[in-house]
Write a protein that binds this DNA or RNA. Structure first.
Lengths: 233, 233
DNA sequence: CGGCCGTGTGACGATTCTGTTACAGTTTGG
DNA sequence: CCAAACTGTAACAGAATCGTCACACGGCCG
């Protein structure tokens, strides 16, 4: 979809106008398109609606902690694939580890040189633009772009909910392999307890409905689970 | 439900009898074999001598701290490869990070739901078992891929029910060896009582029917049981 | 040769599993 | 703040699967 020659869009989240200006200026000089947010709520909203290619996130934010924002971004299917680089004044090890565990891609301690920041951003974007595993799937008439949260069947766009999308990706990650309802619950619902395995069935059904002609490749293996299969039924 | 035909053995380390009962009961229900230890010393000893497939370790232990036990388990060559899942009442980030740094594979905060615990255990064990042998079988015109739940005879796909599939895999796991009906009942039906041995005959028959030309390798040994045999009848 | 034991075969309820629909509780977006 | 969308459950019907039985067949023994 998007070639590397196109401008990458970066969302910068910080509450200090000075930092914001410094960062956006330097990123602009380096050829990036920037958007800004001053607090966590705004960041979440813009991340969802604009789907930037990368997010620069300050740890210190009013109201909501940067780590909290990070966690929420990771949880939302629409934004979970966007790489996040953290900015922080507190350069303690704990912060770093916690940040990375929560899904941040990298970490830049303040004060940072604009040059270093741009380098890190470039490096991270190159990683994304090169075919990272799990970046995009193509299977029969079905195409899935994970980072754009986009699914097409025979070129026609299909709108999936966050859960449906995750479920689809999980199945596509191991094409041909049967995955039990328990397995899918674990991977898609991530240990959320007290969820019935029958719930998987319902979401499979909704998925099939939306996938149309591509649904015939989504097999039920009775007594075992579900799978995508290239074989004819 | 079943991840592999082999029962995984799990060592549960906790000093509270109630927790111990709860955990072992649920793991047993899920088809795991459990062993218990009430303190760090016992845990280390049993881990060394029994080499369980996974260790569930409570952070709070009398005398020796769970973290200390974890560290020692990691240091010992005999136990260093065994995955450890930590249980802890203190859900603080620090505990988690320290635990993971010391080599724990995962972490379950108390109070946990039995369901979540079992899911995490299964996930971890699947990771260990995924590279295990017995993933696929090939025998004459017969090919079986366990994780794809796919059987072909001379390249033609054959649809088996879950029970038939298990039965076939059991027989293929010991090619040439006769397996009694009782043995097959135990392995395929997993200790479900009150099942007639003649039931095996019926499933063998259905299996033969579906296997077509490959069925001639599935021998009846009169008065003993069944086996797959490369010999000609 | 004939009876007995073990096995193959077909049929038949009973059970389990899945697809589908409907609905209530939440969340999202305007 | 309301409407729409999303999500998890419950309920039900149809279908697939399962376990058992009765009977037929065929070897093995005397």
């Amino acid at each position: 979809m998007q070639t590397s020659s196109m401008k990458n869009r970066i969302l910068v989240v910080d509450d200090e106008p000075d930092v914001l200006d410094l960062v956006t200026y330097n990123l602009g000089q380096a050829g990036f398109q920037t958007d800004t947010a001053a607090d966590g709520a705004e960041a979440l909203r813009k991340a969802r609606s604009n789907t930037p290619d990368l997010i620069l996130l300050d740890l210190m934010l009013p109201e909501m902690d940067g780590l909290e924002v990070c966690k929420l971004l990771r949880r939302d299917a629409k934004t979970s694939a966007i790489p996040i680089i953290m900015l922080t004044a507190r350069a303690s090890e704990i912060d770093r580890i916690v940040g990375l565990e929560l899904g941040a891609a990298d970490y830049v301690p303040k004060p940072f040189s604009p040059r270093e920041l741009v380098l890190r951003v470039k490096k991270r974007l190159e990683q994304s633009n090169s075919a990272a595993p799990g970046h995009a799937y193509s299977f029969g008439p079905l195409q899935v772009d994970v980072s754009r949260h986009l699914v097409t069947v025979r070129g026609r766009r299909v709108d999936l909910t966050a859960t449906e999308f995750k479920l689809l990706v999980m199945l596509l990650q191991r094409i041909g392999h049967v995955q039990s309802r328990d397995q899918l619950l674990r991977d898609v619902w991530e240990y959320e307890t007290n969820i019935d395995t029958r719930t998987v069935d319902t979401h499979i059904r909704r998925l099939r409905e939306k996938l149309g002609v591509a649904a015939k490749y989504l097999d039920t293996v009775r007594g075992v689970g579900y799978r995508f299969s290239p074989e004819m039924p």
